[in-house]
Design a protein around this nucleic acid. Structure first.
Length: 279
DNA sequence: AAAACTGCCAACCGCGTACAA
DNA sequence: GTTGTACGCGGTTGGCAGTTT
């Protein structure tokens, strides 16, 4: 009846892995390949449960893992993907094959979330606090996160919309914000234009279904929102990948993700970036 | 110099889903 | 169809390191 238990609970070691344990695990996986985690502790003699072995492998020992600082490029991708997918770290990690879901999750929680909160506060102190309070803490938000994405997306979308139609008045933007607040009880109400294409991120998969390292460029990432949505400035400050020809800043190729630029601009983050004059 | 505080990250926990018997 | 476990995922925590007081 059913599968046998993965491991006995008694005699299981917890806590940090030692180099010796790592060596045992790596050499076993090199020989047998990853998978069938249940047999790993049994066959290697490791006093770890199968779950712990899998986690150690996928988050630390697996080849091709990039460690250390996240590049502005990666930050931008995470911001976009989190806004689109919510806290689906595994899904987000599939677009960044060199990073683990745990790594991305940690980076989001320790860096990016703070930046976004800070951005919201400086953008609309009162409104942002309302949005954050509701959207980031309410049960309703978390239950619908994959549908409604994050408040960051909403603000980013507002800014994109605002930039696209720069002739709009502040009243119109206020109306948008009001709309977001009013839709908090109906999170699925979202304009279709707010659903960007993810094709530019789609992980390349080889014939055996393994992820291949994609060559992302912000030029292609800018194809979000029908290739009209990436914000860049002509100075290229902050990240050269954000550089864009001034000519592109027209009605059809407006600069977009003001939010993203702001987030990636450390100076702006620390000193307070100028906000659109509508405020 | 030392205590208190803060940030970071590896690892654990618990839940939902898939799947084998 | 039912049961029970493995697996995978997201949230949370413990402990170390760095910083501040």
């Amino acid at each position: 009846m059913g599968r046998p238990p993965c491991c006995e609970k008694v005699g299981i070691k917890k806590g940090p892995w030692t180099p010796e344990e790592d060596i045992v695990l790596v050499s076993y996986i090199q020989e047998h390949g990853p998978g069938n985690w249940r047999s790993v502790p049994k066959n290697t003699g490791l006093l770890r449960c199968s779950k712990s072995c899998r986690l150690r492998w996928t988050n630390y020992l697996r080849p091709g893992i990039k460690r250390g600082n996240f590049t502005p490029h990666e930050e931008g991708m995470i911001i976009h993907l989190q806004a689109l997918l919510g806290n689906k770290w595994a899904a987000i990690a599939s677009y960044l094959p060199q990073r683990t879901d745990n790594d991305i999750k940690n980076y989001w929680n320790t860096h990016l979330k703070k930046k976004i909160n800070k951005f919201q506060s400086s953008l609309y102190p009162q409104m942002a606090s309302n949005l954050t309070t509701y959207q980031l803490t309410s049960k309703n938000y978390t239950e619908n996160s994959s549908v409604y994405a994050s408040s960051a997306e909403n603000i980013s979308r507002l800014l994109e919309e605002w930039m696209r139609t720069s002739s709009k008045t502040s009243t119109a933007l206020d109306g948008e914000l009001q709309h977001i607040i009013s839709t908090k009880n109906n999170p699925t109400e979202f304009p279709s234009s707010a659903t960007p294409s993810l094709e530019c991120y789609r992980p390349q998969v080889d014939q055996e279904g393994r992820n291949m390292i994609p060559s992302y460029e912000f030029g292609s990432i800018s194809s979000f929102n029908n290739k009209n949505s990436m914000a860049c400035d002509s100075s290229g400050r902050g990240s050269e990948s954000y550089g864009i020809d001034q000519n592109q800043k027209d009605e059809k190729n407006p600069p977009l993700s003001f939010l993203e630029k702001w987030l990636l601009d450390e100076n702006a983050c620390q000193e307070g970036m100028e906000l659109p004059q509508i405020f």
